[in-house]
């Protein structure tokens, strides 16, 4: 057997194109961002003196406000979506029958329209003299205060945009619960609440956890909702990163913010995965 064959058995050899593709397309940009976070502020030379100055600048600034908004809104989005999506997921998996496909399609359709267009649509609905307030005014003479450009509407926009990312994994999770198990629980005298708490919820947990993680990771990087619906009355961390990379042309600072966000989100995801081991709840070990 040649040395090459020993070093690169067929499995590895055939995986090589994919490994190279992932290294160039996925790992390289990530490492570039990490490397930039250590170079002097407002420079582009990767081989300049590396330091933690950009991180110190972040810690000495008020960036915690932006981190707080992003994490807080993402957490609130996940919680609201969990409450909204579980009944819908249950319906899609167990109740709606032949209508489930049509309803799934209705939830999917908005994904074919640009997120910005959909958010501007909400502006037209909620803005003063818009679809909602204008109608209330003309029909009932009632002029409530506008709610656009508020944190609340930002949250509504995030719930709306990320709903499919919670709903579909959750539906998959709910549909994984065997009907026989539920029937057995009822036969043994379990109440509906007991069946939900001791059968449905634990067995659908893989879908729920995946939905939580997917939604949280996407929502923590959200920027369009705060820009369009929130009128930047709140500044999420993604906005600070964008300003650093554009108007400020401070790529190192933007990179440090991005790395910190990745670490923070990675840490939180790890905590969840330690609590809910997906392999275990999927029954693989």
């Amino acid at each position: 057997m040649s040395i090459l064959s020993r070093l690169l058995p067929p499995g590895r050899r055939h995986a090589l194109p994919l490994i190279l593709f992932m290294a160039v397309g996925f790992a390289a940009p990530l490492f570039a961002v990490i490397a930039y976070s250590f170079v002097p502020a407002r420079t582009f030379d990767l081989w300049a003196d590396w330091s933690f100055d950009n991180y110190l600048e972040v810690f000495n600034s008020t960036s915690y406000i932006a981190f707080g908004w992003s994490l807080g809104l993402a957490a609130a989005t996940v919680l609201i979506l969990a409450l909204v999506c579980y009944p819908v997921a249950f319906g899609l998996a167990r109740v709606f029958g032949k209508w489930a496909t049509l309803i799934t399609l209705l939830f999917t359709l908005p994904l074919f329209v640009s997120e910005n267009v959909r958010l501007y649509g909400w502006i037209m609905v909620f803005i003063k003299n818009g679809v909602l307030l204008g109608t209330l005014k003309s029909l009932f003479g009632w002029e409530p205060d506008s709610i656009v450009f508020t944190p609340e509407l930002t949250l509504l926009g995030m719930v709306y945009v990320y709903l499919p990312f919670m709903l579909f994994p959750m539906t998959l999770g709910v549909s994984m619960v065997p009907q026989q198990t539920r029937d057995a629980a009822y036969d043994l005298g379990a109440s509906r609440w007991q069946v939900f708490r001791e059968v449905d919820l634990p067995l659908s947990m893989p879908g729920i956890v995946i939905g939580f993680l997917l939604t949280f990771v996407l929502a923590v990087g959200a920027i369009a909702e705060a820009k369009v619906l929130g009128g930047q009355r709140i500044i999420p961390i993604a906005n600070d990163i964008e300003v650093a990379f554009t108007y400020a042309q401070n790529w190192p600072l933007g990179s440090a913010l991005a790395v910190l966000l990745m670490l923070l989100v990675g840490f939180l995801v790890l905590i969840v995965l330690r609590r809910f081991d997906l392999d275990t709840i999927l029954g693989r070990r």
């Binding site: 160039v24 390289a28 940009p29 990530l30 490492f31 570039a32 961002v33 490397a35 930039y36 407002r42 420079t43 582009f44 030379d45 990767l46 081989w47 042309q249």
Partner: peptide
């Protein structure tokens, strides 16, 4: 801007690949 960016691509093909 204080950077001397003309050398940027020359020294960082890796970064350029991503960016």
């Amino acid at each position: 801007f204080k950077q001397t960016r003309r050398d940027f691509l020359k020294h960082s093909a890796l970064a350029a690949g991503g960016l």
